[in-house]
Design a protein around this nucleic acid. Structure first.
Lengths: 112, 112
DNA sequence: TAAATACTTCAACAAAAATTAATCTATTCT
DNA sequence: AGAATAGATTAATTTTTGTTGAAGTATTTA
């Protein structure tokens, strides 16, 4: 048995939800290269701090990013482990290559 | 250069959005094992046909599922290729292991 | 201690997504 | 042709998300 093989549905849903917005996606793409503080991200993404804060929260609650405070700056960075969790979830689909074909719908033991 | 390396942001966003709902996730988990018609899915998921139809549409528009009509049944099945696209997108993050650390925020060439 | 900076939170509002029930289309069965 | 079945579509409504601007918290600098 592999570690952390069964993250629950809610975790997966939260993860994909966090990734389902253009601004959040651009944010993590920026963080891919380096840790950044909120003001850097605001500047790069050309959005207000308040707006970005909302999206950063979504990313954080989904476990996709971490924060580290240094003085009055808060540095955001990716939590790669959580990316792997989602990647693995998708990989499960690739694993099983054969999909059982047709099988007529009405024969499936329905009490008719 | 690898084929289809740069799906655009909108495609990725749509894909993750389609995966960001519990019912849709349960749907694709059912389809993981076999092709199913809408009435089978409704029964298994215990939802109304109309409601499921809405969610199937989201999955379909994101390219995650395909349909095949047979008589008056429409069989849904996974489009694994699109799962791979999303998986690859996430894999890009794992690739670059080192994240550039701190770097003080105010030194970044800001005109102050 | 006062002012400034970095960031979050809140509350009001706007916009998008989901739910529901009814209707519509197409196919099959009699 | 008429009734039944599978499924999509529509419109009205509710729920959830996202946006905006103002206010709040914490830290630093003067």
């Amino acid at each position: 048995m592999v570690a952390a093989l069964n993250p629950d549905l809610a975790t997966i849903v939260a993860g994909f939800h966090a990734l389902s917005d253009p601004l959040r996606l651009k944010t993590i793409e920026l963080l891919r290269d380096q840790e950044l503080c909120v003001c850097d991200l605001c500047e790069a993404l050309e959005v207000t701090q308040s707006k970005l804060s909302f999206h950063l929260k979504a990313l954080k609650e989904a476990g996709l990013v971490r924060t580290r405070q240094e003085g009055r700056w808060i540095y955001y960075s990716l939590n790669l482990a959580q990316f792997v969790v989602l990647e693995q979830y998708l990989a499960e689909y690739r694993r099983l290559g054969t999909i059982v074909p047709a099988r007529p719908c009405r024969d499936e033991g329905k009490s008719s």
